[in-house]
């Protein structure tokens, strides 16, 4: 194959310009501005600023509700990632069989991913809302969303369900790329189905699992906002108020721009940190082909 060459030195930069422009305006500038504002007290209306040092950080970390939200988010993310990856792998394995109508099932199982979080929230609200939720009627239990202990469960289930399609697609593709030769030779060596799965399939799936872990962490921390807003508004009594929801309230409802900027920096650091840590520890265990 012959590669085309560009002799113009400036052409690449010109071609990159639109992308860079978008990135600067919508990503870099807001990020830098957020970083800056986290060290200021900000007037809620005019945006006038007053330097405050680490005031915002000290305040948010001495707020027990924020700390609760911090722990809650970690638990929530753990549950969403754990259950999400487990069930999607399970479903992907089932979908990887040769049975009649498999294309049909595949399409339907991937469907939830096409929904926006707010719509997914509305669907679960239809099932669980205390006034006329379908499942409230069938279970005879009204307080799914108004009792803190069950509300977090509903939110976790909804979040897992919503992202199932995404995870399944990736696992399904990965499963198809597991070399049959390796599986065959293992079975000749006397490995049973379970051993084959854990030693061969699982190992070949590890890059995908790693990728999905990172994506699901971001999903659990950031993209579940709409679900929570529709289902519980962070309640009852803060039992579903994860960090992103706390941030939303502080900025959009309470107009505490300084706090919100600091919280957003914390959230950013947290997710980058988790991903970095994950790269450090799992890199060795991940087998790329």
């Amino acid at each position: 194959m012959r590669q085309s060459t560009f002799n113009n030195k400036f052409l690449p930069y010109i071609l990159l310009l639109p992308t860079m422009f978008i990135l600067v305006v919508f990503l870099f500038y807001p990020a830098i501005e957020t970083f800056r504002l986290s060290f200021f007290k900000v007037h809620p209306w005019t945006g006038a600023t007053r330097f405050a040092g680490f005031y915002n950080f000290i305040k948010i970390f001495s707020n027990p509700e924020y700390l609760h939200s911090f722990v809650l988010s970690a638990m929530f993310a753990f549950a969403v990632i754990g259950l999400g990856l487990f069930f999607s792998l399970l479903i992907a394995i089932l979908l990887n069989q040769k049975i009649a109508g498999i294309r049909f099932y595949r399409t339907f199982l991937i469907w939830p991913y096409a929904l926006s979080p707010a719509i997914a929230g509305a669907l679960f609200n239809f099932l669980f809302n205390p006034a006329n939720g379908v499942l409230c009627y069938f279970t005879g239990y009204r307080s799914w969303l108004t009792d803190g202990r069950t509300a977090i469960l509903v939110v976790i289930i909804a979040a897992v369900w919503k992202n199932l399609g995404y995870n399944v697609i990736f696992y399904l593709t990965a499963l198809r790329n597991v070399p049959q030769a390796a599986l065959e030779s293992a079975s000749i060596d006397g490995a049973g189905a379970i051993k084959r799965f854990f030693y061969i399939t699982f190992a070949f799936l590890s890059p995908t699992s790693f990728f999905l872990f990172v994506m699901n962490t971001t999903y659990a921390y950031f993209a579940t906002f709409g679900l929570i807003d529709v289902l519980t508004e962070g309640g009852p009594a803060g039992s579903t108020r994860i960090l992103i929801y706390h941030l939303y309230k502080d900025f959009f409802v309470h107009s505490k721009t300084g706090y919100a900027a600091a919280e957003s920096l914390v959230l950013f650091t947290l997710v980058v940190g988790i991903t970095f840590l994950q790269f450090q520890t799992s890199e060795k265990k991940v087998h790329y082909q």
């Binding site: 809302n129 205390p130 006034a131 006329n132 009204r142 307080s143 969303l145 108004t146 519980t232 508004e233 309640g235 009852p236």
Partner: peptide
């Protein structure tokens, strides 16, 4: 008293359904 949570839809629904 039935706790129907926040928002403006649920208590109206409960009243409309005779609940």
């Amino acid at each position: 008293f039935l706790d129907v949570g926040p928002g403006w839809a649920n208590h109206r629904a409960a009243f409309g359904s005779g609940e």
